[in-house]
C-alpha cells in the first residue's frame, strides 16, 4: 500500500449531441428569445486594432460530408499577441467566438482580427494563430486544433515544428484568398485529416 493521492480525476466528457445549439447558440436552435444575445457572437467590437479578416470553411466527416451540425469555438490573442485579461490587452478584443456550421450548406464563418505573435513561457515566439475547439454529435471529446495563416512566417512555430509528417502542417494553415479572406477546412478523419492537438 502507498499513501493516497489527493488529486481528483477530471470529469469525463460526453458528446455535445445534435442539440448543442440550444445551450450554446440559442438563436441558431430557434430560441432567440431566451437571452438578449448569443454569448460570444463576435470576438471583436468596434475599434478593435489590427486587420479584420474573415475565415470560412467546413468541417468534413470521414466520408467527406460537410457536417451541418458542428459547433466551433475560437480563442485568440489581439493584434499585439496579448490575450484578454492580460495587461495591455486591446479592450475591443474578447478573443472568444462561437459559431456554427450552417444548417443548409455546412459552411462556417469567423470574422475577427488577425492575432499577433504570442510569446511562450521561455520567450520563444509562436506564429499568429487562433485556437479552435469543435464539438458535435458523434464527437465524444471536443477536438482542438489551431488556425495559422499562409501569409505569415510559420517556420519556427514551436507547435507546427512538432508535426513529424511535414505535409500535415498544411492542415493547420488557413489559405489567404486575397483581401481579407481566408479558407480553413477541417477534416475529422481520413484523407487530409486535420492535426488535432492534446495540449
Amino acid at each position: 500500500m502507498t499513501q493516497k493521492l489527493t488529486t481528483l480525476t477530471e470529469t469525463a466528457s460526453q458528446t455535445a449531441g445534435p442539440y448543442v445549439h440550444i445551450g450554446c447558440i440559442p438563436t441558431f436552435a430557434g430560441l432567440g428569445a431566451i437571452y438578449p444575445e448569443d454569448l460570444g457572437g463576435s470576438p471583436i467590437s468596434e475599434g478593435a486594432k489590427g486587420k479584420v479578416i474573415t475565415i470560412t470553411g467546413s468541417v468534413y466527416d470521414g466520408t467527406g460530408w460537410a457536417m451541418r451540425d458542428a459547433l466551433l469555438e475560437s480563442w485568440q490573442a489581439d493584434a499585439s499577441g496579448i490575450y484578454a485579461g492580460q495587461p495591455n490587452a486591446d479592450p475591443a478584443v474578447t478573443g472568444f467566438c462561437r459559431f456554427a456550421a450552417d444548417g443548409t450548406t455546412g459552411e462556417f464563418t469567423l470574422r475577427t482580427v488577425k492575432p499577433g505573435r504570442v510569446a511562450m513561457r521561455d520567450g520563444r515566439m509562436q506564429a499568429p494563430h487562433i485556437a479552435i475547439w469543435i464539438v458535435a454529435r458523434g464527437i465524444n471529446v471536443g477536438l482542438s486544433t489551431r488556425i495559422y495563416f499562409s501569409d505569415e512566417d510559420n517556420a519556427t512555430d514551436p507547435v507546427l515544428s512538432r508535426i513529424e509528417q511535414r505535409p500535415r502542417v498544411e492542415t493547420m494553415i488557413a489559405r489567404a484568398q486575397g483581401g481579407e479572406s481566408y479558407r480553413f477546412d477541417i477534416r475529422l478523419q481520413g484523407d487530409g485529416e486535420t492535426v488535432f492537438l492534446d495540449m
Binding site: T15, M67, A77, Y83, F96, N140, V159, E193, L197, M199
Partner: peptide, 29 residues
C-alpha cells in the same frame, strides 16, 4: 456502439504537447 463516432473520430493520433499561454488563458464572463 455509437455509430456517428465511426465517421467523426480522428483516425490519427492527437499531437500531445505542453500547454502554452493560448491554452492556459481563456474567456471570462
Amino acid at each position: 456502439g455509437y455509430k456517428t463516432t465511426m465517421t467523426r473520430a480522428p483516425s490519427l493520433p492527437l499531437l500531445s504537447l505542453d500547454s502554452t499561454v493560448t491554452e492556459q488563458t481563456g474567456p471570462v464572463f
